[in-house]
Amino acid sequence: MRVLVIGAGGYAGSALTERLVEAGHEVVALVRPGRTGSPGAAEVRQGDLADAASLTAAVSPDVDAVVNAATPSGDAALDAAAVDALTAPLRGSGRPFVYTSGVWVLGATGTGTLDEDAPTDPIPIVGYRPEIERRVLATAADGVRATVVRPGIVHGRGGGIPAMLVGWAAEDGGPRVVGDPSVRWPMVDVDDLGDLYAAVLADAPAGTVWHAVAEPAVPVRDLAAAAARATGADGAERVWAVEDAAMELGEPFAEALALDQSVGAEITRERLGWSPSRPGAVADLGEGSYA
């Protein structure tokens, strides 16, 4: 399969590219003008999420599938136009289109664990994203094998949001958490996420939503403590009030880091045979790729 990957040079996109190449696929990396491609890609094409014509041109007839693994722009109209531009050449073809969303669209989950069928209740930083998900899934009626993947907080390879915890621990000499230390984050290793993308491309029916979550609810306090171990710091835990964190990080992101969630992926595991196998987030932070 020849797969166009938007965001192939990014954190998740580079792991996805490696996974697809290992599975015998050819990756066409779409990068912004002036950027380099992703290692392993068979071809590099230039395009920009803000340039709809460049996106449509990149989805040529020789492309068998498209995965949008790029970070959303934060602009609802721009992201909607990008979805329309990427799916226009796919309509009526049955070719796959995979859109990357995230578990923050579910909002605070309370005492239960939310599955793939749960209604969305997004926090402000992703407030418009459920509508983008619906826009993607609606293309299934036009002959696109459209699917949505919602990763948890991604860890592994020393990157992602958990790298912030390591940086804070080094700065403070001990763990730092935003808001209530008892909040929980759904977690997934970046290479397990790559495995799920490959499974979705191979087997997922049109119009479906999948959760990329290996660990449904990891206490942030445990993640922050592991981050401190990675740096050799042994100081006391610092609780960073959301309003104080917002002054440095911006209110929407600070609120997202303080979000308590428990998110499951049993439907994804059962229907696609996805079986995450990499070390858990606490082990990865304390003794793995961040140490």
Rank of each mutant, 00 (worst) to 15 (best):
Y11S: 05
S182H: 08
D260Q: 05
A138E: 15
A85K: 07
L30S: 01
V239T: 07
A80I: 13
V28Q: 07
W240G: 07
R269M: 15
V136I: 13
A140E: 03
A228H: 10
Q46N: 10
D75Q: 11
A23K: 15
G112M: 15
D62N: 11
G40T: 02
L90R: 00
R269T: 15
E237F: 08
R157Y: 01
V103F: 01
D189N: 01
T147R: 04
P151Q: 11
E266K: 08
G286D: 08
V126D: 02
T113G: 05
T147H: 03
H211P: 13
G280R: 11
T71C: 09
S289T: 02
G235Q: 06
G264H: 12
D79L: 03
G160W: 04
D189T: 09
P72F: 09
F253S: 06
G94S: 09
G7E: 14
R95M: 10
M164T: 11
R45L: 12
S93Y: 10
R95D: 06
R238Q: 14
T231W: 09
A283E: 12
L114F: 09
A283M: 13
L55E: 06
T109I: 06
G152Y: 09
A52D: 12
V103C: 09
G74S: 02
P279L: 00
L78N: 11
A146F: 13
F253A: 04
A57E: 13
E287F: 15
V200W: 08
T120R: 13
Y128N: 11
S93F: 03
A69D: 04
A206D: 10
D51F: 00
P216W: 00
M1N: 13
R19V: 08
D64I: 09
D64G: 08
G179F: 00
V21W: 01
L16R: 09
M187Y: 06
V67I: 14
E255Y: 02
A236N: 08
V98M: 02
V242P: 01
A70L: 14
A29T: 02
F97G: 01
E26R: 08
G235D: 13
A108D: 14
A233F: 05
R184A: 00
M164F: 15
L285P: 07
E287D: 15
L137G: 03
S262N: 05
E131Y: 12
S182R: 15
R176N: 04
L196F: 02
A204N: 14
G232I: 07
N68Q: 06
R229M: 10
A108G: 12
R32K: 09
A23M: 13
P151W: 05
A214V: 09
P33W: 03
A214P: 10
I153C: 03
D192H: 00
